[in-house]
């Protein structure tokens, strides 16, 4: 291989774990690229990052990144990340999750993380399907879309995840797609820099299951469609519900400042501490 053409983000990967398990055409690679790009633009120290994930295709990403990474249980990475952040508020804690992980089994942890406004960056890769288990519908599958557990089309209403997390109290919320890598990189940069709960909904393609079951022949076709269906949030706010039928609203849903949870705890410790050490940082290694 021509070393000079190696992806510039390869230095962040565990090369001894490659190749990865992702299918050809999966959006995870684009999102990893945009993550590293956003991280560099935000000038976040890679050495200070901890990645946390749940279960599913998107949650496999941290296992390929050469940093501290905790691959947890299905739907619960935000709870583990909460413990990490409180134990060492200096760390930059990023959660990779998917629509099944964050919106179905982990929905409660998602809204409570947002409610606390704890300083986590949650990147939710929303491909509208359960890929790892073979193409079952998820809480974000569009009504009428097909999956192996919706052979006659999905009957349920999908979640609007970005609106949900915004309503729950997150201070930065944005949605872009894998067809918008520049915007996605910029959004990840902003999310990493936001001191508070940041939610990036990265709408992605699963050609293997969603595409195949919903008659979209190739990942390219899926990405074209995402781009065509996209409406900027600013513009969407002027449109009626019927005009937005079949559209994908992209852009920032929330960008505000509010007191952050780990900060509040640190201030409480400074206020109440009687030992003169208002931090327990790495105390497990101390003799007394």
């Amino acid at each position: 291989m021509d070393k000079t053409r190696e992806n510039r983000f390869m230095k962040y990967l565990r090369k001894d774990r490659l190749p990865n398990i992702f299918c050809a055409g999966c959006g995870n690679g684009i999102i990893m690229n945009t993550f590293f790009n956003g991280m560099e633009m935000a000038e976040i120290d890679f050495e200070n990052i901890v990645l946390v994930s749940g279960i599913g295709c998107s949650s496999r990403i941290p296992g390929y990144v050469k940093c501290d990474s905790l691959h947890t249980t299905h739907g619960r990475p935000i709870s583990f990340a909460t413990g990490i952040k409180l134990a060492n508020p200096e760390l930059d804690v990023v959660v990779f999750t998917g629509d099944g992980d964050a919106a179905a089994i982990g929905g409660n942890h998602l809204i409570h993380g947002a409610r606390r406004n704890i300083d986590l960056t949650v990147i939710c890769i929303n491909n509208s399907i359960y890929g790892m288990t073979g193409g079952q519908i998820s809480p974000t599958s569009p009504k009428g879309s097909y999956g192996s557990t919706a052979p006659y089309g999905a009957l349920e209403n999908p979640f609007n995840l970005s609106e949900l997390v915004k309503a729950a109290g997150a201070t930065y919320v944005a949605r872009w797609t894998t067809a918008h890598p520049v915007q996605l990189s910029n959004t990840i940069k902003k999310a990493l820099l936001n001191k508070g709960f940041s939610f990036v909904e990265a709408v992605s393609q699963c050609p293997t299951y969603f595409g195949r079951k919903n008659r979209m022949k190739s990942p390219i076709e899926m990405m074209h469609r995402m781009k065509e269906e996209s409406v900027l949030k600013r513009k969407a706010d002027q449109l009626t519900e019927s005009e937005l039928e079949g559209k994908l609203v992209v852009g920032e849903f929330q960008n505000k400042t509010a007191p952050e949870f780990s900060d509040k705890i640190c201030r409480l410790l400074e206020d109440k501490c009687v030992t003169g050490k208002p931090s327990s940082l790495k105390s497990a290694y101390q003799e007394d």
């Binding site: 947890t72 709870s79 583990f80 990490i84 409180l86 409660n108």
Partner: peptide, 19 residues
Amino acid sequence: MEDEISALGAVIGAVWTGL
């Protein structure tokens, strides 16, 4: 926390971060 599942999750996160 919001339930006992997440309570133990947060505990595990804190333990791996040195507490």
